[in-house]
Amino acid sequence: MTMTTTRISGTINGREVTTEVDNATLLLDLLRDLGLTGAKPSCEMEVCGACAVQLDGLPVSACTTLAIELDGRTVETVEGLAQSADALHPVQRAFLQKSAFQCGFCTPGMIMSAKALLEANPSPSRDDVVHWLEGSICRCTGYESIVEAVLEAAEEMRNG
């Protein structure tokens, strides 16, 4: 069956991308087909946050976002944060320092959600962090170390 397609141009992790996508393609599939497998398919109903990426700065569930939404817009995924292991983003560094992950499945989504928070609100309270991460599910850590990591990253980013 021939699928209806749309030509889109947008930015993924700082790179201009122009491509023809099936209208019915989900953003998560487009990203993973490009080799960006940090965002994970998991609940597939916007509940768990494992597929969270930033779309024009705000976190969205890539599992329930159409790929055509990239058109004219900017998507950031965890792969775009660091060029090398010694040039990590402050949020990534804080997650390491605070051991804010165990299995790591939720981590790309957590990190992108946390980065979006710190860009929207550089000085979040603990309550702000907890509220923002409601709907980002981790089945290993119990969340405490994740909240600590986000607060630590906030401080580091404020101090430059």
Binding site: E46, G49, P59, V60, S113, H131, L133, G135
Partner: peptide
């Protein structure tokens, strides 16, 4: 509005 669903749903 601050408590609808989660932050990703609120953004979209």
């Amino acid at each position: 509005a601050r408590h609808v669903a989660n932050v990703r749903v609120r953004a979209a």
